[in-house]
Design a protein around this nucleic acid. Sequence first.
DNA 1: CTAAATGCAAAGCATTTGCAAATAT
DNA 2: ATATTTGCAAATGCTTTGCATTTAG
Lengths: 134, 134
Amino acid sequence: MDYVATLQQHQLKATPQRIEIVDLLYKHGHINVDDLYKFLQTKFPSLSLATIYKNINTMCERHFLTELKIPSMKNVYELTKKEHSHVVCSQCNAIIDITLDTSKIIEEAKSISHYKLDKSSIIFNGFCPQCTVE
Amino acid sequence: MDYVATLQQHQLKATPQRIEIVDLLYKHGHINVDDLYKFLQTKFPSLSLATIYKNINTMCERHFLTELKIPSMKNVYELTKKEHSHVVCSQCNAIIDITLDTSKIIEEAKSISHYKLDKSSIIFNGFCPQCTVE
DNA sequence: CTAAATGCAAAGCATTTGCAAATAT
DNA sequence: ATATTTGCAAATGCTTTGCATTTAG
């Protein structure tokens, strides 16, 4: 995965800070601002929170990142991918992506609401396999 | 609808401010903090934002209210009802409740994720009939 | 070389807290 | 009568902004 090229495709200069943000998101999947800051600080001791916020904001504007609002959790960010849903563990806060066949439920929503729908956000809560065992 | 009794069932004293909050939510369905404040101020000129926040927080803790996190919108609150989904107009921000048959999609999510699921939050975005026309 | 990004400090909002006075039960 | 709630002011926390310096392309 060539982070430099990916950033440039979105008109974002490939600074070391940004490359590290992308790397973290690529490896962790979903991260909130504070954790991003903690991780990045180890690599860039002079890093400022303002830089994180500025980057997150421009990256979201360019649709390079997507902001995820999960009930009773801080917002997390992920690299923008094709539409998918999320499953969240209420115990350990693990978040995973799943791809569902949403066509039926979208049709149902359309016919009930009479809205012209173009996007859906589906989040499930429960317990992951590890947390279910213990 | 007896707001006093409903509040008391949730161990909440029926103050005039709270009664009005419930009334507003009952009539509007979904409201954010600022709008609540604006509406309530006309009736209680001395009302403090702190009171709104305190009430929203305790009401949510007692599951009398539910907080709704909608992408690119301020959080809104609604009276807690049986599980349902939301449809949001990206133009005028109208929010409506719809009840869908979610059993199939929940089963699908369970079998893909191997999580034990107990809750789902489904939000659709699009354009309401009025905004589609114009 | 130039436009964009970084880091710092200050500013701006949003939300919470502490406390005295008022109020619901 | 008592515990809870209100409203105010202050405090806290989160996010944004302005600006001088640095850096990517």
